[in-house]
Amino acid sequence: MIKLIINGNQIEVEENTTVLKAARELGIEIPTFCDDDRLSKQTSCRLCIVEVEGTDKLLTSCNLEVKEGMVVNTESEKVRIALKINLSLIWAGHPNDCMKCGKSGECKLQDYSFEYDVDAEPIYSVRKEAIAKNATNHFFEIDPDKCILCGKCVRICSEQVGVGALGFKNRGQETYVSFGNDNFEDAGCVSCGSCVSVCPTGALLNKTADKYRNWDVDKVRTTCSYCGVGCQMELVVHKGKIVRVDANEEGSNRGLLCVKGKYAFNFINHRDRLTTPLVRKNGKLVEATWEEAYAKINQKYLEFKGESNSFVGFSSARCTNEENYLFQKMFRQVFKTNNIDHCARL
């Protein structure tokens, strides 16, 4: 174990821990765009700079390993000034259009710029020539204009998803992120949206017809309802409608989702949903009340009661445990039969 001091607080951490992580254990959040525990280090955004006693230079804390007796300051005047300059340089290459950006309210660039008093009008003019949006994917688009080249999307796609559909193109001021061949399908993109999940700005945003502000939504943690992996996710709700699905990093899926979990949620609020019971009358299914529907089922139950073998139930691998429990209870307790099965074999 290694002992060090950060902002006057003593802490003991494992060897090989970075200063960024040690600070986080103390509840001190050091700004960063490019760092993610799950990914390799890129150390390019230079926001995580800290002052270390005995060194003149400011050091990046995401790749700085703790040393015994180290004294670190993350909030000194020197750090704040340098951080503001670094942020201003990033901001200078970014369009000033937060008011119409879908990321507004959840954008790290916006948050840090506010926190460190970055001027809205950039004092530097480093705007690169606009590169057109890449909208080839059906679910999200890439806006190179808003990209700060933190590279998290590129790394998550290759290191975590194991696909490698995204990469950096060109060099210097001309650098931008895109699919190989600039087309998602050619690049082998599987539309899982992990790149969108990690993007700190509005450079990677879902395509959506829903207009909502990020401060105007509720998020509800739940379990995905597609395959058996059981990914943890957050349903983003705006005015009683699911408008987005966000990944959750606490589950076994570690913040990763697939195209179905992340994007195939339209069924929930879809116009084809059944909204009322239907009962067959004169050969046709017609709308009915719950009471009518229950009465019809009860009538048939009473008709065949006593012939327990004439009842069969198809339970569901799509419903909850509680519902499956009740279903078999109903068959065994009420209908007096074990004729229950479900789609486990399909």
Binding site: T223, C224, C227, G228, A317, C319, T320, N321, N324, A344
Partner: peptide
């Protein structure tokens, strides 16, 4: 294969 086939 399905979200709650284990549970069912």
């Amino acid at each position: 294969g399905q979200n709650n086939v284990q549970g069912a």
